[in-house]
Amino acid sequence: MVFLMLNTAEGAKLVARRRSRRGRNPAYVGIVAVVIALTVGVVTVVGQYEHGVQVADEAAASSRAATLAKKKAFIAHLAPYARTLKVNYGVLPSITIAQAILESNWGTSDLAAKYHNLFGVKATKAQAGQEMTTQEYVNGKWKVVTARFRSYSDDYASMRDHAQLLAHGTTWNQRQYAQVIAARDYKTAASALQSSGYATDPGYAQKIIQVVEKYDLDNYDAN
């Protein structure tokens, strides 16, 4: 509608012209004044709404940027030592980093934040640990269980213990993760993790692969 384009100054001029043409009819002038007032109000509300949307979009973009920056910082924190562990134990850096991301929710889980356990490694009776609840896939269903998990002095101690577990296996099967160590690409290693029984989640391998590919973690596998 044409009147939506009016501003207050233009409205005032229109009222003056209408008064001169209509002999200053009070009723007519009153109607025009109401229309102008409503128009100004609509324009103001629309402007405020658009400003609000813009502010919300900017806030959301800023939040996404901050989250991405934290994720990149977490990867940068782990990557150099992950490469060292590849040399010492043969674990692909992409697998080390992707597992840490997935198991610790980017280092934000209580287990990771308080006890530096980035991989959900459970503790034996002789090891320092903490009892915590976790979800495990048992008999085709997710269940909340209480388990005792390792606690570490820092993230790198957790990474080293994880690499040693994969390289040396468990006390009951020293070659349990031999296929993970033998793998030369992240997809094969991820599949080997699942088939070797590292996690109960039936979608574990695919989740690892998705994390590697989303954040280009295989770039760290190159010599």
Rank of each mutant, 00 (worst) to 15 (best):
residue 135 Q to H: 14
residue 105 N to Q: 06
residue 40 V to R: 10
residue 102 L to K: 11
residue 82 A to H: 12
residue 37 A to K: 10
residue 166 L to S: 04
residue 173 N to I: 02
residue 119 F to Q: 02
residue 130 Q to E: 01
residue 52 G to H: 07
residue 179 Q to E: 13
residue 159 M to L: 09
residue 118 L to R: 08
residue 33 A to I: 00
residue 220 Y to A: 09
residue 78 L to M: 15
residue 138 V to W: 13
residue 212 V to T: 02
residue 196 S to K: 04
residue 21 R to C: 05
residue 166 L to E: 02
residue 2 V to Q: 11
residue 98 A to S: 09
residue 28 Y to K: 13
residue 107 G to M: 13
residue 42 V to H: 00
residue 172 W to H: 13
residue 151 S to Q: 01
residue 84 T to R: 05
residue 143 K to L: 09
residue 55 V to L: 06
residue 220 Y to I: 04
residue 147 A to C: 01
residue 80 P to A: 04
residue 157 A to C: 02
residue 171 T to I: 08
residue 56 A to Q: 07
residue 38 L to Q: 11
residue 66 A to P: 14
residue 166 L to T: 01
residue 75 I to R: 02
residue 153 S to L: 09
residue 143 K to N: 09
residue 174 Q to S: 06
residue 64 R to V: 11
residue 104 S to L: 03
residue 207 K to R: 15
residue 95 I to W: 11
residue 90 G to N: 01
residue 200 T to R: 09
residue 203 G to W: 01
residue 47 G to H: 00
residue 6 L to H: 03
residue 124 T to S: 05
residue 116 H to T: 04
residue 120 G to A: 06
residue 67 T to L: 14
residue 91 V to K: 03
residue 105 N to I: 02
residue 2 V to W: 10
residue 185 D to Q: 11
residue 5 M to D: 08
residue 95 I to N: 13
residue 9 A to F: 00
residue 81 Y to C: 06
residue 201 D to N: 14
residue 216 D to A: 14
residue 175 R to K: 15
residue 1 M to C: 04
residue 11 G to M: 13
residue 211 V to F: 04
residue 192 A to D: 02
residue 180 V to I: 05
residue 174 Q to G: 14
residue 9 A to T: 12
residue 109 S to V: 08
residue 208 I to F: 07
residue 192 A to P: 03
residue 1 M to Q: 08
residue 133 T to N: 12
residue 55 V to R: 06
residue 162 H to L: 01
residue 140 G to H: 06
residue 18 R to Y: 12
